[in-house]
């Protein structure tokens, strides 16, 4: 057993709280180590001094005060925890719903806009304009016959 380990156990040794095996180890180390023996001696002296101190009466309401304070503190911390948890419990599912709702709404609005945009914008093939153009080219001298042939060439 090292000195450090022994010093941690000295208080328990003095109070008779160690098991036999540990007690023997401590005694064996104390038999060999002078420094630890001195440490033990000091602790014994402190213990004697504490026992000899005159006792003083505690105020009558001290216990009540301590109890009250403890309960209040416990209550406060509990309340805070409850508030946060309750709020989280209340709002978390709603936020999710809000986000999902907003996303669905955006998709619906997007689809509506797309459909509106397309229904209000008729689709016309460029062929239509090109055929009209080619037909106008037929007004040019010496291109009427060629125009007729090219007008058939679709996209």
């Amino acid at each position: 057993m090292t000195c450090k380990k022994l010093r941690n156990k000295l208080s328990a040794y003095l109070d008779g709280e160690l098991r036999n095996r540990e007690k023997r180890k401590v005694q064996s180390h104390l038999g060999q180590c002078r420094v630890c023996r001195e440490q033990l001696g000091q602790l014994q002296k402190i213990g004697i001094l504490m026992q000899n101190l005159p006792s003083q009466e505690a105020p009558a309401d001290l216990e009540a005060k301590i109890l009250k304070r403890t309960i209040l503190d416990q209550g406060k911390s509990k309340k805070k925890l409850i508030d946060v948890r309750v709020l989280w419990q209340i709002f978390r599912p709603d936020l999710e719903k809000v986000f999902i709702g907003a996303a669905v709404l955006m998709v619906i609005v997007g689809c509506c806009f797309y459909l509106w945009n397309f229904s209000s914008r008729p689709e016309i093939s460029i062929n239509y304009f090109e055929k009209e153009y080619v037909h106008s080219q037929g007004m040019s001298p010496f291109s009427g016959e060629l125009t007729m042939l090219i007008s058939l060439e679709g996209e």
Partner: peptide
């Protein structure tokens, strides 16, 4: 000899 045509109409999608 050369011909230019300008077409115009309310908004449409010209497929091309």
């Amino acid at each position: 000899l050369g011909v230019i045509c300008l077409f115009q109409r309310p908004r449409a999608h010209v497929k091309m």
